[in-house]
Amino acid sequence: MSSPRLPGERREIRISDADRERVAERLNRAMAEGRISVEELQDRLRTVYAARFSSDVHPVLADLPGDPLNLSVDVLATPVGPPTVLRGGVGGLRRRGDWVVPPRLRVQSSIGSVLLDFCDAQLPMPVVEVELELGAGSARLLVPEGATADVDGLVSAYGSVRSKVPARAVHGRPHFRVYGRTAAGSVTVRSRYAFAGRSF
């Protein structure tokens, strides 16, 4: 039987399968870099796949440089539930102004350009997952000042992926996980000031 939580004590955050896979990917990279042995990798992976809380996985990364997985408390609070699907046509897709951002977005566009402006939007959750399924069209994500974005999960066949904001999450600030695929279009993530004087 677990001990009751004391007043003011921070609640443990349960991690998801996606979080475990992110940690496992980092450990595999560490082995490829020669930082850990095959045996160490296997031992650490057993710990990762048995983990229930964010605190369970921190020890397996403690002796690796930096915090490449952005494993802060907020980031490990992975959004759950089905994504809200936004589909763009030839004319493109735009979301801007005062709109409520769901915790998970799936954006599908084969030709038209995509603009997602989060600066004046309502962000109920500290972490927003944006899955992009793009063809030839480009996508621009405009995030609030101080926000961070992890674009490592985004794969581009012939296009480009650029982020002008920090990747590492900062407690108390919005964090965006951007992943998915783009065939030929470019994807850019920037803050408001970087778009000054430009229209889309």
Rank of each mutant, 00 (worst) to 15 (best):
G34D: 10
E133L: 12
G97P: 04
P83W: 02
R5F: 04
R162T: 13
P82T: 10
R22W: 00
E40L: 04
V60R: 06
S16V: 04
L45P: 09
G180W: 05
V130T: 07
V90K: 07
S110C: 03
A149R: 05
R106M: 09
P102G: 02
M125W: 04
S160I: 00
Y49S: 02
E39Y: 03
S110L: 13
A18K: 10
R46H: 11
V57W: 00
G197E: 05
R10T: 13
G66R: 01
V23K: 09
E131M: 01
P79W: 08
V80G: 15
H171D: 15
P174T: 11
V60P: 03
P4V: 10
R96Q: 13
H175G: 14
E145W: 03
A77I: 00
L115R: 09
H171W: 04
F53P: 01
G135F: 00
Y158M: 15
L93A: 06
R168T: 13
L134Q: 06
V143N: 14
L123T: 10
R177Q: 03
P7S: 08
R181V: 05
L61N: 11
R10H: 06
L123M: 09
A136S: 15
R181A: 04
G135P: 03
S191Y: 02
M1T: 11
L115E: 10
V170H: 06
L141Q: 06
N28P: 00
G89P: 11
F118C: 05
R35D: 03
R52Y: 11
A184D: 08
T188V: 10
R190K: 01
M1K: 08
S16C: 09
A77R: 13
P174S: 12
G185K: 04
L154S: 06
G137F: 09
P7Y: 03
G8V: 09
A184Q: 09
E9V: 05
L142T: 02
H171R: 15
H175W: 15
Y193C: 01
S37I: 10
G89L: 13
A24T: 06
R94F: 11
T182E: 05
I36C: 09
R104L: 04
V80P: 00
G135Q: 03
F118M: 10
P82Y: 02
A167K: 02
L154V: 08
A24I: 14
R29E: 15
V101W: 03
V73F: 00
E12Q: 14
G159Y: 10
G159N: 04
V100D: 08
S163H: 08
G185C: 07
D150F: 06
I13P: 01
T47G: 01
I36T: 05
E21R: 15
A50Y: 01
R26Q: 12
L6F: 00
R20C: 12
V73L: 08
I36S: 08
R14F: 07
V128L: 02
V187G: 05
V189C: 04
R29A: 14
S16G: 05
R94I: 14
R95L: 03
D17M: 02
R94W: 10
V80D: 13
L116Q: 02
R95V: 00
R140C: 09
L134I: 09
V23Q: 09
A196M: 01
A30F: 13
G34P: 07
G137V: 05
